[in-house]
């Protein structure tokens, strides 16, 4: 059982905008050192939650803590421990990239190590000439890279990243994942909102799914993946009889022809393998369950 202070903790956290309830009584605990994927459709309340953690928005009810510091009462201490990348980075466009990073570094409670900043900018493929250009000349991908640099440069123990890879090219996505792996190795916690389920599947330890402001699923990624069936396709070398009637309920028949069975199997493949004994199996294709098979269901309606 974990005894450390959660990196992110919310209790009954609620935010109303007039009649709209953007976040409803959110109870969440993200352990330190985890990469937590925060998922949901547009308008589900992901960004609002992150902004509540940063005290940019005042909660209508409930409370939130960052590494043991109340986000409202002790907001300065809480934010001193967090690096933030907004979904839409709002840099002044008449500033250069270097100036923007400089101002944010000077405002940071954490000393920015020059060597780390240089390494970070190299890994994000920033050249000196890029940093000396005005941000108005940057592409949207460059602006996002600058926002990543600003979030990571303080080496904060908690990173709050709002859709960080949106608009990044595949090489930069890889560079970002490598950075994420590095900060995770150093023990930092990452709270990451994303639409990209394959990305979440790849980098997150645990996910939370938000639907219209309510947390409808919170579990480790492996566990969520196991909630989805495996897709099994068996091809026979010659015609065989239909599958036996006595299969357990965890095996669902999708389609059957004399030479091919398509099945959906939850849990163990044992009953299927047993029933194939003596049959002329030519090919067996098992597709691992994917996170999105489960998550998309939760987006639509909680099962």
């Amino acid at each position: 059982m974990a005894t450390t202070t959660p990196a992110v903790f919310t209790s009954g956290l609620t935010k109303r905008f007039g009649r709209l309830v953007a976040v409803k009584a959110l109870d969440l605990a993200v352990e330190q050192g985890q990469v937590f994927g925060f998922l949901g459709l547009n308008g589900a309340g992901k960004t609002t939650t992150i902004r509540l953690l940063l005290n940019l928005l005042r909660p209508s009810a409930g409370r939130a803590e960052v590494l043991g510091h109340d986000c409202q009462a002790d907001g300065i201490a809480a934010r001193a421990l967090a690096g933030y990348m907004p979904g839409e980075p709002g840099f002044y466009r008449d500033m250069t990239g270097r100036q923007a990073l400089g101002v944010l570094a000077r405002l940071s409670a954490r000393k920015v190590r020059e060597a780390w900043q240089r390494e970070l900018l190299e890994r994000l493929a920033f050249r000196d000439a890029d940093l000396d250009r005005r941000i108005r000349e940057y592409s949207s991908g460059m602006r996002r890279k600058l926002a990543i640099a600003s979030a990571f440069q303080g080496e904060a123990p908690l990173l709050l990243l709002d859709e960080p890879t949106e608009g990044l090219d595949p090489l930069m996505q890889e560079a970002f994942y490598a950075l994420l792996a590095d900060v995770r190795r150093r023990g930092a916690t990452v709270f990451l909102s994303s639409h990209v389920l394959s990305e979440v599947d790849r980098v997150c330890d645990r996910i939370g799914v938000l639907r219209t402001g309510e947390l409808v699923l919170e579990a480790p990624v492996d566990e969520v993946r196991r909630m989805a069936p495996q897709h099994v396709r068996i091809v026979f070398g010659s015609a065989v009889a239909p599958p036996p009637a006595g299969w357990p309920a965890s095996v669902e028949i999708v389609s059957v022809t004399p030479t091919e069975w398509r099945l959906r199997v939850r849990g163990s493949l044992g009953p299927v393998v047993q029933s194939m004994g003596g049959l002329p199996v030519a090919d067996l294709d098992v597709r691992e369950p994917r996170l999105e098979d489960v998550v998309i269901q939760y987006y639509r309606e909680a099962p």
Binding site: A80, A82, P86, P89, A109
Partner: peptide
């Protein structure tokens, strides 16, 4: 409006 306040106030800035 521009979102610069988000970047500033996400720091330990009162």
């Amino acid at each position: 409006e521009a979102g610069f306040a988000d970047l500033v106030l996400a720091q330990a800035v009162p």
